[in-house]
Amino acid sequence: MKYLSQFCIILAFTLVGEALQRLLPLPIPASVWGLALLFIALCLGIVKPEQVKDASAFLISIMPVMFVSPAVGIVENWDLISSRLLPIFLLLAASTCLTFGISGRVTQWLMQKGGRHD
């Protein structure tokens, strides 16, 4: 029963997220609305971590399996990308390297400047 009630709370936030995506004129996915609302509810103490913890740990752990099906769909777009594999590779490699460097450097610079550290 523990999992059932936890899953129910998660589904409730998902439903509100789906409703917000449909009702508000903002291009934000239902999952992001639900995530933000559940986070706020946890911060405000409306939902206690114990009320959702186990079911959410389970759902998060099986999440990678859910990506197999969209990834298989790449064969449907193969015609468009097959001739551009090299530039796509360069784009992904270069932007990943720079994103890594920029995000890390900014944090490190602020940590040294602020002198706050764990």
Binding site: F7, I10, L11, F13, T14, G17, E18, A30, S31, V32, G34, L35, A36, L37, L38, F39, L42, C43, P49, V52, K53, A55, S56, A57, L59, I60, I62, M63, V65, M66, V68, S69, P70, V72, G73, V75, E76
Partner: peptide
């Protein structure tokens, strides 16, 4: 591919609630 993906719908719909769950570790 389309009948494979159709058969995976049962799993795919779990993705939205699973993403909502990311709020818990984030908190």
């Amino acid at each position: 591919v389309s009948s494979y993906k159709a058969g995976m719908n049962t799993i795919s719909w779990l993705l939205t609630p699973a993403t909502v769950c990311l709020a818990v570790p984030m908190y």
